[in-house]
Design a protein around this nucleic acid. Structure first.
Lengths: 218, 218, 218, 218
DNA sequence: GATGAATGAGACTTCATTCAT
DNA sequence: CATGAATGAAGTCTCATTCAT
């Protein structure tokens, strides 16, 4: 029955969308299945029909989102010219995408990390996946002689860490009494640091041009 | 009544120590006051006599620990020679200290995230405090001409992000099926990246020597 | 879904009935939700599904009971011949009904007092409602010239006070080492006092006849 | 050691006074021993040195107050001229005294009644003691031919009930959204009802004169 | 006598999950 | 497929009472 399957999928999407919204607004821990159900226009039993449990909802959300993100990242990588630019483009597109989906950003950066056990692991795994993508570009860059040899595994993870810190600052600015930082502006500095950190010349790709291209591409 | 006060203080310390242990082992969310009490050799009511609630226990733990850490960091900063080295020494001593107190590291990096908004904010605040320390060194470095001008606020935060990623990898390596990374080795790469990221010459301070000096400073 | 709703309503009734029983037997304060649940053949969570808290159970009990009582009282008022008799009939039927439901009597007169301000207020409100009914009859009696003018508001409240004292004595007789008073006998005296207190002639309605008529009215 | 005994007694009085205040303000159930201790300028252990438990504090308060009240009532009875006036004077002085000590009124009429078991019993006992005093006057009145024969036990209790209702209305007026009733005015009606209820002529003792005399006597 | 830290039973409440309808 | 009533384990917190100092 493809009709029913389609209905089921759409219902699942509705639930995931609603869950993303409430998780971001009130925190994974503080949201009950009741609330997810209500926000989805379903009943508690309905949610349980589609997902085996509360953490499965978040897990599905993480998986679905990370798949989409990875696709975007891969596209961005493919579109860039040289290895280091490719690595940088990966992070840049990640940042730009999440900056447009605050809920998802919060879920990845805070909610799922603090949700304990399985959820935590999955987030780290997803980070790993992105780190691997970046690492591959850095490896190429070394082979190409664009940057000096370095432990690219560690470097890629460090880049993810930088990225994470930017997102966190942005997400928690209001709660900390700061004005929300301008991400584009912040990223100017960040890109320079990324390039320099691996020994690449930040000057060989003028920031403004890069930014414009990226912005239009999406 | 210094006698009773002394007893109270020692009991508080006992509770905090026990709490650190159980929070790290089984997660803030999964630990009940029962468990904290049992681990402290106290009763539930005893814990509540000293702390108004479970989150207050974690809060006290964070505050106490962060104070100690800041002291260490300040000492390390004072002991280093030039501005960039001071900034780097801050992170290095942080890493070395937390690597010796896995429980505390886990609580700062992971558990506090799942403990609700207030705790969350506090962790970010504490990160800010360290960021400010680092930022001050970078500012000096720029004034001294050791590194080119840069948005030191963003840079300091990025450094914290790098540091954070190292800690997270180390904490979750086992759960992710990886072997626990050797932090000293990892840090070799990290330090180079830190220096380079702000345009400093990483070569001017050989790793081994740096390590030794740090060791003596503590 | 009238099926589920029917089940829910019946379950609520079961809970209220059980609560009335245990509250009367062991006192509102000494009864836990555990006990209410057990007595209802439900689980603690089940009680909380239907009532937001322990005091809400008592509140619902008071409301439901007072509605039933008011209906009885209004019927008795309608069945009596002259205004003063109507006022008296109101109290009489109240007494006769509560004397058959000791649990409810105890809950209204004693338990609700120890259940905190809100419940307390509600009981006074309910008393007010009955006082208003009586006051209306006394007002009519004055208009009809059956009794001399008087502050009927105060008078009605005084009647309630008399009624209350009878109930209290009856409820606490055993605990005070007295034999439980015969309410019918006591009421002989009470009725005379009620009539006299407002200047009515108590002789015009012989007790026995009054009693029979009341009995039929119900 | 009479000195120590005196100190002990004064400390007890301080505790009782403080307890009366906090019980009246926040309710017996909601007040903890901590609060009693703090309000007494003592420590929790200090309260336990003087009283075996929380209910013992309230019990002592009830006993002490009721003794004082009984003394006043007996004096008022002795001062009145004829038997019915004596009975009425008992209630009147009770009302006037409690109207000047709202805290105590609330404790007798609400807190202790809702406090369960022993406390409840004691309040009813105390009510009995006053009822007996009144009953004795009514008995004399019957012997003297001032009022027709009646079950004086029931009558006396009914009088107490009327008295209780007046106090309750006065105590809870604010919470019920009413303006606090003027007790003197209310009592005009009440006295007439009291007299009439036992078949006495309320005219034989003009209200105003009676009131003035009573007021001056105290 | 007094203090206040400590106890521990028990209160209320929440919520992920199950399942009859 | 969906509903929502029901479950029950577990959690946080309170507080009368005890007792070492």
């Amino acid at each position: 029955m493809p009709v029913q399957q389609a209905r089921a999928r759409s219902r699942q999407q509705k639930i995931l969308k609603a869950a993303a919204s409430v998780f971001a607004k009130r925190g994974y821990q503080d949201v009950g299945m009741d609330e997810i159900a209500r926000a989805s226009g379903t009943s508690k039993g309905g949610v349980y029909f589609h997902f085996p449990g509360k953490d499965a909802v978040l897990l599905a959300l993480l998986d679905q989102t990370s798949t989409l993100l990875r696709r975007k990242v891969e596209k961005a990588i493919a579109a860039a010219d040289d290895p280091v630019a490719r690595a940088e483009a990966a992070l840049h597109v990640l940042l730009q995408t999440l900056s447009k989906h605050r809920s998802l950003a919060r879920i990845f950066a805070i909610e799922a990390l603090g949700a304990g056990g399985r959820l935590n692991q999955r987030v780290m795994q997803i980070q790993d996946e992105f780190a691997v993508l970046i690492q591959a570009q850095l490896d190429e860059a070394i082979v190409a002689g664009a940057i000096p040899p370095i432990d690219t595994r560690v470097a890629a993870q460090a880049w993810i860490g930088i990225f994470h810190s930017v997102i966190m600052r942005w997400l928690t600015a209001k709660e900390r009494g700061e004005s929300s930082p301008d991400l584009d502006e912040t990223y100017e500095t960040i890109r320079i640091m990324l390039f320099r950190s691996v020994g690449a010349d930040p000057g060989h790709l003028p920031g403004a041009v890069q930014d414009d291209r990226d912005g239009q591409a999406r």
